[in-house]
Every structure is written in C-alpha cells, then in structure tokens.
Amino acid sequence: MDLASPLVWAQIISIGLMAVALGLDALSLGLGIGMKGIRKLDILKISVTTALFHMIMPLAGMRMGGYISMLLGKVATMCGGILLLLLGLHMVYSSLRTEESKSYDYRSFLGLTLFSLSVSIDSFSVGVSLGMFAGDVLLTVLMFGVAGGLMSVIGLLLGRRVGQWIGEYGEALGGVILLAFGIKFLL
C-alpha cells in the first residue's frame, strides 16, 4: 500500500467515515447505558466486545459480498449502493421512532452479546456492500473495530454526564452518512 497515493488516502477517509457512522450506534446505546450508571470494568468489557463484533460482522459481510460480486459482476456495485441507501434510511427511521425499547442487563453474557450484536449488525450489511468492491479487508476490519470500540467507550463515559438527546441524533447522523455513501456508489 503506497501511502503517498491520493487513492489510498481517499479509501482510508471513506472507510474511516463509514466506521464512525457505524460506531454511532454504539455511541448512542452506550449513552443510554451510561446514564443508568456503569462501572469502569463493565465499560471495558462492553467496549472490547463491541470492537470484536465490529470486526467480525463486517468481515463476514465482506466475504459474502465478495462471493456475490463474483456471481453478479457490475450489478453487485448497484446492489451494494442500494443496500447502503436502505441501511442509512433504516438508521434515520430508527432514530426518529419514539417507542421505548425493552431494557436488558448489559452485564450478563447474554446482555453483553445482545448489545454488541445490536450495534454491529449494521456492520455486516455494510461489509456485504464493501465486499462487492475490491478494497483492503484488513484496513476496513481494523478501522471498524477501533471505531466501534472507541465510540462505545465514549458513549458509556459521556452517558454518565449528559442528557439522552445526543443518542437520538447520533444514530440519525450515522444514517445520513451511509445514505451519502450509497448515493456515491450508485452514481
């Protein structure tokens, strides 16, 4: 990888923006959990698990997307763009819904797994889209993992100090970023 190449930097910036957009789910849910009060050890466990899921889910999606790309060729690019558009729309819609979701114990193994899976499932779908394009898999997976873990830590720590309004806007912002990338892939 030639770091002086503008294409490499464009890829790093694009993947970084997607990683942050997907990490906003972890930030927003972390805010909610953090506002209930949380120990530092629980913050560490949740953040590490979230980072792992943010690496595993897009990797699985990229593998599937690569296979789909082999089968469909150029149609796969359009499918990837449409998938990002739909995912972005869903994130914006979810952030605007006002219904209350059922709470679970994030300290239990099941609760920790459900939290990490719920904030990483979008990464699988984006991974499918990215797998349809030839990209740097290791860079993508690492950036997604780091962003997911950091956003989780930030959300959990900030949740102890701020109001609930940030969580709603965070998920909406992530959806808008994915919408923009979906449009870019379609054009």
Rank of each mutant, 00 (worst) to 15 (best):
S95E: 00
L87V: 12
D25A: 09
H54Q: 15
R97Y: 02
L142P: 04
P6T: 03
S118D: 04
L31N: 14
K40T: 12
S94L: 06
V137P: 06
V48I: 15
T98D: 14
R107P: 00
L71Q: 15
G80S: 11
I12C: 01
F115N: 09
H90C: 05
M132H: 01
T77P: 02
R97K: 15
G37L: 08
L84F: 02
R39L: 10
T49A: 05
G148N: 00
L186R: 08
D136T: 08
G23D: 09
G155E: 03
K45I: 05
M62Q: 01
L24E: 02
I68E: 07
V48T: 11
G30C: 00
G163C: 04
M1I: 00
M55I: 06
S108D: 03
M91E: 04
G175V: 03
I56L: 13
V176D: 08
G16N: 11
L83Q: 00
A76V: 02
S14M: 09
L84Y: 02
G159K: 01
I33T: 03
M151Y: 08
G32N: 13
L178M: 15
A134V: 08
L179E: 01
L24K: 01
T140E: 02
F115S: 10
V128I: 05
L156W: 02
V48W: 00
L52M: 03
L41M: 11
S95G: 15
G155K: 13
G159V: 02
T113F: 14
G65Y: 03
L83M: 01
G88S: 09
G81E: 04
F133R: 14
F144Q: 12
T140V: 09
L112A: 09
L96C: 07
L72S: 08
L138V: 07
G148L: 01
T50V: 02
L84T: 01
A51I: 05
E171C: 09
G66V: 04
G81Y: 00
L44Q: 09
S125N: 07
F53A: 15
T113A: 11
L187Q: 04
D2P: 00
M55T: 05
M151N: 12
L179S: 05
G81Q: 03
S95A: 12
V8Y: 11
G66Q: 14
M91A: 09
L156V: 10
F53C: 13
I56N: 02
